[in-house]
Design a binder for these strands. Structure first.
Lengths: 144, 144
DNA sequence: CTACAACAGTTGTTAATACAATGATAAATA
DNA sequence: TATTTATCATTGTATTAACAACTGTTGTAG
């Protein structure tokens, strides 16, 4: 059953990758999900990032993203700013300290990511990415 | 950064797939991991399946596999048999009831797996699988 | 044979996650 | 405008997972 093989392989692969990256992050006191939030925020380049929009780029429900932000806040890596236009919203920003930490981590994460994909040539990676992009990884749990 | 794109895509894809399959299993009262254990046991065709060897096919540490088996035991879906040759080992077997439940679930899981991969042709799936098989998804946490 | 190390599995504990319920604000509608 | 409904986020709670410590068994070195 080729469908099953593909699905199982991707699930297992995702978990293994997550484990390795999590191990890489451990010395820096960040969980994989905390790291994800920081990278998402950096990617916004200062644009407003409501909790909802951040959750949209993650694998979590909003309730848990909220608590992940709590942890980052305790460490001074992000800021929470009530949105004045819509006081239901909360905008999250990465701090200088957060950016600095990310910069430091970037190197080792790059190394880990390269190691994890070392068995593929550039062409194969292109090809793989193209195939993966055809799959609609639609997550149903953004909003709750 | 193509390495990063591949790694991130597989991690996210794995999570999304797991979520969908988990949703499919919910009406049957099985978690994804309980289902994994059952499928692994069925795949052994009655061959001895120590807890350690089952853990080897999973994404978990043995301690958690042990508790997943507890749950399956409560439901009468597996049996625990102390290994007489080596009394440290415990062999796990799937029961008739477990096989019956799996058989029922197979249909809907097949459906879900097909839906998840519907955007790929047979050739593309072959190609994708071939590329994924080049990656060494080596998990470091089997034994603990 | 005894002592010590390694192995297979279980139990304890804390942190992370899923899911439900709530709170506060904004939007829609009567 | 008053009332209802929808939106955005947080809090509560039970389940699941990671990690460490422990139990019982086997292997091995002296």
């Amino acid at each position: 059953m080729i469908n099953r093989d593909v699905v199982v392989k991707i699930m297992k692969g995702g978990n293994v990758f997550a484990e390795h990256i999590g191990n890489t992050l451990q010395p820096y006191g960040l969980s994989l999900q905390q790291f994800n939030v920081l990278r998402i925020l950096r990617g916004r380049n200062g644009a407003a990032a409501s909790l909802e929009s951040v959750t949209g780029d993650m694998i979590h429900r909003m309730s848990n993203t909220s608590r992940i932000v709590d942890k980052l806040l305790e460490k001074g890596l992000v800021e929470r700013v009530l949105c004045p236009e819509n006081r239901r919203k909360v905008n999250i920003f990465i701090t200088q300290r957060g950016l600095k930490l990310l910069k430091k981590i970037d190197r080792v994460i790059n190394q880990t990511e390269e190691t994890l994909t070392a068995s593929l040539s550039k062409q194969e990676m292109d090809q793989l990415l193209q195939l993966l992009n055809k799959i609609n990884f639609y997550n149903t749990k953004y909003t709750k």
